[in-house]
Amino acid sequence: MSLDPALVEILACPDTHHTPLEYDAAGQTLTCSQCRRVFEVRDGIPVLLLDEARTPGSPA
C-alpha cells in the first residue's frame, strides 16, 4: 500500500527539528534526513512515534 503523495509532502519528523521525511515505498518507511530516524508505515499508516523509530545502527 502506497502513501498519498500529498500526505508525504506534509509529513515531518516529530522531533524538535521537524525536518521533512523521505518516503521509501518499497521498504514502507519514512526517514528523517536530519536525525536519520526511520519510521515504519504499517497498513498505510505512518507510525511517527519517536519511541518506535529505528535509529542509525539499530537492528531492523
Results as ranks from 00 to 15, higher is better:
A53P: 05
P20T: 07
L21P: 03
V47E: 08
L49C: 12
G57M: 09
T29R: 13
A26Y: 07
L30Y: 05
T31A: 06
E40Y: 08
D51A: 15
T55I: 05
G57D: 09
V47W: 10
L11K: 02
D24Q: 10
D15M: 02
A26C: 09
A6T: 10
D15W: 01
L30G: 10
H18P: 00
I10F: 01
H18I: 02
L30V: 08
C13Q: 01
E22G: 01
E22D: 13
A26D: 15
T55M: 12
D43T: 08
I10T: 11
L7P: 04
A26I: 14
A12G: 02
C32Y: 00
H17K: 06
L11G: 02
Q28I: 13
Q34G: 00
H18S: 09
T16W: 00
R36I: 02
L49N: 10
E40A: 15
V8C: 05
S33T: 00
T16H: 09
L11H: 01
L30R: 05
C35W: 02
P59V: 14
D24R: 08
P14Y: 05
Y23F: 14
R54Y: 14
P20W: 07
D15I: 00
L49E: 13
C13M: 04
C35F: 00
T16Q: 13
L11A: 02
I45L: 14
L7D: 04
L11V: 03
T19E: 01
D51S: 14
L48M: 06
L30M: 10
H17V: 01
V41G: 05
L50A: 10
H18M: 02
S33K: 00
T55Q: 14
P46S: 07
C13A: 04
E22C: 05
V41F: 07
A6H: 03
I45D: 07
Y23S: 08
R42I: 15
L50M: 14
L30I: 10
L49V: 15
C13K: 04
I45Y: 12
S58I: 08
T16L: 06
L11S: 03
L11N: 04
G44F: 11
R54E: 15
F39N: 00
A53D: 07
C32D: 03
G27R: 13
L48A: 06
R42F: 09
P56M: 13
A6L: 05
P56F: 12
D43C: 08
L11Q: 01
R42G: 07
G44A: 10
T31Y: 00
L30H: 08
V8S: 04
V47P: 02
L21M: 06
A26G: 12
G57T: 06
L21S: 03
L30K: 05
